[in-house]
Simulated scan of single mutants.
Amino acid sequence: MPVTNEWLAGPSPTKRLDRDLLEERILNLLSSQNMCVLATSGADGPLATPVRYFHLGFTVMFTAVPTSPKMRNVAADPRVSIGIFAPLVGQASSRGAQVFGRARVLGIDDPEFSHHWPAFRWQSDHVERSRPLDEPPSGPLTVVEADRIVYTEHWLRRSGYAPRQFWKRQED
């Protein structure tokens, strides 16, 4: 029987990408998508919520109403997992990342707010809601700096690399 992608058959390679190439692929994924699934845990158990995100390097950012279930969970336990993925057409196109870190909620008075806020593209929301562009929202902004990332890309098998790659933040 003919096989579309012969390189998908058989055992997966185990070769690791070097850090620079892995980071390039992760950043490409983060830059080419805008929706993620935020996984939190709270008194009522686990919660997985679709969220529109922006990123600054390996930090994922989003805004949310402080009283929402996801934000109540973050307040109770800041450890989160974020799933980001490209549309799946078939096994060869499988590409995504699991980002693990701690969520921090930054108010406009937080010293880190001004570092992250310029990367957050709020203008399109304002236009869509007929709000003036000279009145930006004032947050809060939730940021998740990645501690580790599990990156999956089955196309890597074609070049002899493992489809699942592992990234860890290096301490300065």
Rank of each mutant, 00 (worst) to 15 (best):
H154R: 07
T142R: 06
A97V: 14
G107S: 15
L133S: 04
R157P: 03
Q91A: 05
P118T: 06
V127E: 11
F100H: 14
P132Y: 09
R157Q: 10
H126D: 03
T152G: 12
E128V: 04
P137Q: 10
K168L: 11
W167E: 09
W122F: 14
E23I: 11
D44I: 02
S41T: 08
R158I: 05
D44N: 12
D172W: 07
Q33S: 13
F62H: 10
L106F: 14
A39E: 08
P132T: 09
A103V: 01
A9K: 15
S81K: 03
F113H: 12
A119S: 15
T67E: 13
R157F: 10
H55V: 15
S124G: 01
D110S: 11
Y53T: 15
P163Y: 02
M1H: 07
Q123P: 03
V89E: 14
A9T: 08
R79M: 06
V3M: 04
V37K: 04
P2I: 03
L29F: 13
P69M: 09
V150S: 13
F166P: 00
V74C: 01
D20W: 01
M61S: 14
L21V: 14
A119V: 08
P163E: 07
T49Q: 00
F120L: 12
P111V: 04
F58M: 15
L141A: 04
R102P: 00
L22I: 10
E23A: 14
G101E: 05
S124R: 13
R131G: 00
W155N: 06
V3G: 01
G57V: 12
M1I: 12
W7S: 01
S93F: 06
P118K: 05
S41Y: 12
A103E: 00
R104Y: 09
R19T: 07
W122P: 00
E24K: 15
Q170K: 13
A97L: 11
V51G: 00
I26S: 00
E112S: 15
L17T: 08
N28I: 05
L141Y: 05
P132A: 11
Y161S: 02
T67A: 15
Q91M: 08
L133F: 08
L56I: 08
L21D: 14
T49A: 09
F100A: 13
L38A: 10
E135K: 09
T142V: 15
V60L: 14
V99A: 11
L17C: 05
S124Q: 15
R79G: 04
L17Y: 08
D172T: 05
A75R: 12
Y161E: 13
E6V: 02
V74Q: 02
W155V: 08
D18G: 03
M35P: 02
Y151L: 10
S68P: 00
G96H: 13
P13T: 03
S81H: 01
F85C: 02
P66C: 01
P13L: 06
R102H: 11
E171C: 09
A103R: 02
P132W: 05
L17E: 04
R121V: 02
N73H: 06
H55Q: 11
R25E: 10
R52M: 06
P118S: 03
W117N: 11
